[in-house]
């Protein structure tokens, strides 16, 4: 079975993640949607690595993981700070960007 199928799988997961980001009001859930998108990209990278028989895809996936870890730390800290200030983590509440 061709490894390209994993790339299709990655596309589907990416779409599900993006839909979650748009649909969910809970900031943590939306954030998990972002994580899923990152993982889908990772999966695609690993699959490409396999298809091309080169290591660079895996290295990229590794770096993405590291950056994602850092991102999660900061993102969750932001969510906690927002929660402290507003007692809610709903994405619909902070409408201060309203023009």
């Amino acid at each position: 079975m061709n490894a390209i199928n994993f790339v299709y799988l990655a596309a589907i997961l990416f779409s599900i993640g993006s839909a979650a980001v748009l649909l969910r009001r809970n900031a943590i859930v939306a954030f998990m949607g972002v994580e899923l998108m990152l993982n889908a990209a990772n999966l695609a990278l690993v699959a490409f690595s396999r298809l091309h028989g080169q290591l660079d895809g895996q290295i990229m996936a590794f770096f993405v993981m590291v950056v994602a870890a850092a991102e999660v730390v900061v993102g969750l800290a932001i969510i906690i700070a927002v929660f402290r200030a507003r007692q809610t983590i709903s994405l619909d509440e902070p409408a201060e960007l309203k023009g």
Binding site: N2, A3, I4, V7, Y8, A11, I12, F14, S15, I16, S18, A19, L22, S49, R50, L51, H52, G53, Q54, L55, Q58
Partner: peptide, 27 residues
């Protein structure tokens, strides 16, 4: 719609590429 459209677009793009898989095992 956008998520579905994105999926369709991505899949159609992937379907168009032709990669001859390498049998070499790395990793």
């Amino acid at each position: 719609f956008t998520a579905g459209g994105l999926a369709i677009l991505l899949i159609s793009v992937i379907g168009r590429v032709s990669i001859s898989p390498q049998e070499e095992q790395v990793g």
